[in-house]
C-alpha cells in the first residue's frame, strides 16, 4: 500500500511499508540482497548502492538501497525479527 506517492511524466516515486521476501548472499560476513519478491513478482537486484543502519525504538535496523535496470528500492531489515519491508520505490 502506498503511503505517499509523487508522479511526474518521467518517474514514479512511492513511500511504502510492504512486507517482502528477500533472497540474500552472505559475502565476507555482509548481507547482500540478490532478489526481492514483492506483490507476487520477483525483482533481481543488480546493484547495492548504499547500506546504512539506524536504531529505531531500541531496534537495530538496516536499510539497503538497491536497484535493477528500472527500479530503485529501499529495503528495511529489522534485525530483531528478521522482517524485510519495502519502504521506498522509484521507477524511471
Amino acid at each position: 500500500m502506498s503511503l505517499t506517492a509523487t508522479f511526474t511524466p518521467f518517474h514514479m516515486h512511492e513511500y511504502l511499508n510492504d512486507p517482502i521476501d528477500v533472497t540474500v548472499d552472505f559475502i565476507d560476513s555482509r548481507v547482500r540482497p540478490r532478489s526481492v519478491c514483492w506483490d507476487n513478482r520477483v525483482y533481481a537486484m543488480k546493484n547495492v548502492n548504499l547500506v546504512h543502519s539506524t536504531n529505531e525504538e531500541g531496534q537495530h535496523i538496516f536499510y539497503f538501497s538497491v536497484s535493477d535496470d528500472t527500479n530503485f528500492m529501499k529495503l528495511r531489515l529489522n534485525t530483531k525479527n528478521l522482517e524485510w519491508r519495502l519502504v521506498e520505490l522509484y521507477t524511471d
Binding site: H11, N47, N49, L50, S65, S67, F72, K74, Y90, D92
Partner: peptide, 10 residues
Amino acid sequence: SVEQQANPFL
C-alpha cells in the same frame, strides 16, 4: 549526493 548515491535514477 547521498540521495544520488542511494538511487542511481536520480
